[in-house]
């Protein structure tokens, strides 16, 4: 049985994974506009996301996504962990990640050539861990090894990125979740990395 707070973490990870893997389509935008807040910090961020979705169209979001992450030659941000950690791709962090994902039975889809350390893939992996593949210690270890070192900076950069409108709200929510994860895991006894 998964606690509501942990289910909420998984929901947010999945939401972030979805929005960071591709720009939201019209149906997703409709759902985003329906998000409501409740006065809590996370509620406020979700309300901000709803507000940002209300003034955005799918076409503009495609362009924003492209400008931020793909760009001509290079987008504004590189959403891969090894880039943030090592300054280039396919480095040691990626090798560590591959090993850890293998241990968890989370290998990448056959034929996929994209590195596994895309922020969307890592958020997806956290959701899977929370929803049953890993206990709290395993979640903490994975977070500390593969997200904590760079994802907070990535989300902060996303929040401030020049091209970010809708995605500034995504960055804010992501930064919030990273902070809550770090502080939440502080309650959990350390696991050797």
């Amino acid at each position: 049985m998964i606690a509501p707070e942990d289910q909420g973490r998984a929901y947010l990870y999945r939401l972030l994974a979805r929005l960071l893997a591709a720009a939201p389509d019209a149906a997703t935008l409709g759902l985003l506009r329906g998000l409501g807040g409740d006065g809590s910090p996370v509620g406020g961020d979700l309300q901000g996301l709803a507000g940002a979705a209300a003034t955005a169209g799918p076409g503009a979001l495609e362009r924003e996504y492209h400008d931020l992450f793909i760009g001509v030659g290079r987008g504004e941000l590189v959403p891969f962990g090894s880039w943030y950690l090592a300054g280039f791709l396919h480095e040691k962090p990626l090798a560590h990640l591959r090993r850890d994902l293998g241990t968890l039975g989370l290998g990448r889809t056959a034929g996929t050539k994209e590195p596994e350390d895309h922020v969307a893939s890592l958020c997806e992996a956290m959701a899977l861990l929370i929803e049953g593949k890993g206990d709290l210690g395993a979640q903490k270890a994975f977070f500390e090894r593969h997200l904590e070192g760079w994802a907070p900076a990535f989300f902060a950069d996303l929040e401030r990125a020049r091209a970010a409108r809708f995605y500034a709200a995504v960055g804010r929510l992501g930064a919030r979740l990273m902070t809550l994860e770090r502080d939440g895991f502080a309650f959990v006894e350390g696991v050797a990395a």
Binding site: P4, L12, G37, P41, G43
Partner: peptide, 10 residues
């Protein structure tokens, strides 16, 4: 922080 109630909206 809102991970119980608010996040369930997601």
């Amino acid at each position: 922080a809102g991970l119980g109630t608010a996040a369930s909206g997601a």
